Simulated assay, not measured.
Amino acid sequence: MKIKYKRREQLLATLNNANEPQDGMLAGFWHHFLENEKQQVFGYRDEKTISRVIAAQKQFYDNTHPGFVKIMSDGFFLLPNLLDVELNTASDLEKIKRLSADDPWIMDQTAMVKQIVAHYQGQIGSFYNVFSPWYQLRLRFEILDGDPNKIYRFFREEPALFKRTLMELATDLKLLVELLLRETGIEGIYLCVQQPQGNGITLKHWEDSIKPSELSLLAQAQKVKDNNLLHICGFDGKRNDLTAYREYPFKAVNWATHIEQVSLEEGKRIFGGRAVLGGFANTEKDILFKADQQELIAATSNLINETGTKGFLVGADCSVPFKIDDERLRWVNKVARVYGK
């Protein structure tokens, strides 16, 4: 007898490699809704911006009919204790104060996600975007200071303090993650990580000083709900050693297959058979953005044929272009939904 899943139930089955191939596939894509990076960081302080993000994410769902959703953290990119503090030298990291459990950044973010999830009416499963401690600090320096090298300089100057700071940021993020997982109805978090890109920081440095904070955060999330996703970010051509993440606790993993040149099938082997998410490159130069309807439909079917149906969620390497036509994503979502039926 064939099993007929609702999309949310099917998502959970897929994460556990227990989905039925004749029930179709699930696809999901996402992009940001605020074009200005400063708005991404400070938007949470403006009720109109929060309302705009909520409305946009609801409309995106209505327009694209996805199989699952990754809710974007637009307006809430960075921990608030990273914002109103001068960080000019590595020793200034001592100035970062711990976050309280009732900070508006946590409470308002939770309320936002709860509103968005309610819009799905239990039909689909969803995840919420969270940047890792390293990612948070890197974005702070890049967006607010305009200095992408500062994070590497701080690491080299005060490695012990730097590691301790990342662990403290992880503790702050746990406050958010636990509340989100317990109260909003999301299935899990989508944790964004990325290894240092050269600048004298080796993989051994990463393992010793950065990896512990990510493991700590993800392990805590898994204690509350164990359907969390790991996103190994290859945005803008960044490269990572995928094998270094094999011991991370997660149900499914997403990486830039086209940047890393590691296929979904190979990645499944690297990660011990766990579920995988992705398949499409995500820039304006790629099929997802520029192919015609028939080409995109064929590419979707080919991707599923090549990867297989078990433990596979159709998606992209990373966020898709802001300007993409929602209709294009709806084509892919529909092809995946009826696959094998």
Rank of each mutant, 00 (worst) to 15 (best):
T14I: 09
T165C: 09
D23S: 10
D108E: 00
D103E: 13
P321E: 05
S132R: 13
G198E: 14
E183W: 02
R52D: 13
E158A: 08
L303G: 08
L288Q: 04
L82I: 06
H205C: 07
G200H: 14
E20M: 11
Q197K: 07
Y190I: 00
F322N: 03
G125A: 04
I270F: 13
P133C: 06
E9C: 06
C318L: 04
K310A: 13
L179E: 00
I71A: 07
N36F: 15
L176C: 05
Q123H: 08
N19G: 10
F235A: 05
V41T: 06
D226R: 15
N305A: 12
K223P: 06
K310Y: 14
D62A: 15
D74K: 00
I143V: 11
F60L: 03
L329I: 11
E284K: 15
N81V: 12
A244Y: 03
L87Q: 15
C318T: 03
I71D: 03
S301Y: 04
E20P: 11
G311E: 10
A252D: 15
E35H: 14
L173E: 07
P249H: 01
S100C: 08
A291F: 13
E295F: 01
W134M: 14
R182S: 06
L242N: 12
Y190Q: 02
A298N: 06
Q22W: 02
I143R: 00
P133F: 08
L15Y: 07
N227R: 15
Q195F: 08
N305D: 14
Y135C: 09
R7K: 04
I297L: 12
C233P: 10
N240C: 11
W134I: 14
L139M: 12
P321W: 15
P66S: 01
N240L: 09
K225L: 00
I259Q: 00
K341Q: 07
D326W: 01
P249F: 03
Y190D: 08
Q195D: 03
L139E: 08
D208T: 11
R337D: 04
G122M: 07
N228A: 09
